[in-house]
Design a protein around this nucleic acid. Structure first.
Lengths: 193, 193
DNA sequence: TAGAATTCTTGCCATAAGACAAGTTCGGCT
DNA sequence: AGCCGAACTTGTCTTATGGCAAGAATTCTA
């Protein structure tokens, strides 16, 4: 069992060595083929994943049925649908592998047990939530204060793996524009070299 | 001490009567005058508030100094800057009273103690975080999939207090448009009756 | 209560992005 | 290798929203 990635993910000043070991033991390795669904609309999520390598995307459906990419998950990130997992309600989102993926999975029940028995772990969890919250808050502001072109340039800088591995239409959706506009923006950028 | 509001806020299946009492006791009443700062950029937030009545807004500053309204807090809501409070780092946001406000305050240290000693309380906290996360995720999607006009109509329906009590320019900022465009949208709506 | 300052509205023109439709290229399957 | 469908590009026209500036209305404050 390659513990390095998990050690890194769960590193926190209040989590000691034995506790870290216990947390890591709670994970088991799982793989997904390109195109596999990790979570489907209507299911209650029952675990989360730590993505060792590969790319996934989460998406929901519009009132008129259009598919909206809400997020990408790439290397070393936690793949989770927070609302469904923690509120035990059916998910309104789908999560799907864009490439073959290797992951570490932890079940909700196991997580729950550790969350309440290891104080450092609940701190860790809150810290993680805090970061996600910040991420989405920031994103909601940037979606209107920054032009689509600049959001794209920012994505290239911050998460190049996405741009390299995802079909363009999903990136367009994530940026909040149509694939048509996205194509034009890419053209414009390439012409500036 | 009027406990009703606090009882309601902290109601959770895993929080028993004595524990609820303990949580409520940890709050003290505070008031703010219109225009008062609850939190200023650069400060580390040291408590959060439960807003009994009044309206507040949080805002950050752009790279070019423009003031961006990131959120409103109205009756019965929790007024908090999560990132600063839980990561103990200087806030990049300001929180300011738009009207006179009555609140219940709880200090970080006290909260922290309760968070780790009452299992139901950490569950409650996680649940709250989950809801906020959902809120901002939703918002980041809606900022680009829904027109400014529809976002405004939605705001009127969901949080009429804001529309009634806040200067229009802040609402415009929150909707992600200029006050000029907002004025036109309002005109258009009023002409449809 | 007058004057100043802020907030809000309006006009004119510019620009980013969407809608739709017709190609073109790419990638998976047999 | 060759075909088919999906993914991507491009053209033309439309629409939502922004930028700037001037004027009207509101509100603060002395």
């Amino acid at each position: 069992m390659n513990k390095e990635l998990l050690c890194q993910i769960y590193s926190h000043p209040l989590i000691g060595e034995t506790e870290l070991e216990k947390i890591i033991q709670a994970h088991r390795k799982v793989s997904f083929k390109k195109g596999a669904f990790i979570l489907e609309e209507g299911e209650v999520s029952n675990s989360y994943l730590i993505l060792e390598n590969g790319l996934m995307r989460s998406f929901a459906h519009n009132y008129n049925g259009t598919d909206i990419t809400t997020d990408f998950f790439s290397n070393q990130e936690i793949v989770i649908e927070v609302l469904s997992l923690f509120q035990r309600i059916p998910s309104r989102e789908n999560i799907r592998a864009l490439t073959d993926c290797d992951c570490w999975e932890i079940k909700f029940d196991t997580f729950q047990e550790l969350f309440h028995s290891i104080p450092g772990f609940s701190e860790w969890g809150r810290l993680w939530m805090t970061n996600r919250l910040f991420h989405f808050k920031q994103r909601s502001v940037e979606m209107v204060t920054i032009s689509a072109k600049d959001r794209y340039l920012q994505l290239i800088k911050e998460k190049p793996q996405i741009v390299l591995q995802s079909p363009l239409k999903y990136i367009a959706g994530y940026l909040g524009i149509t694939d048509t506009s996205f194509s034009r923006i890419r053209k414009e950028i390439s012409q500036e070299h």
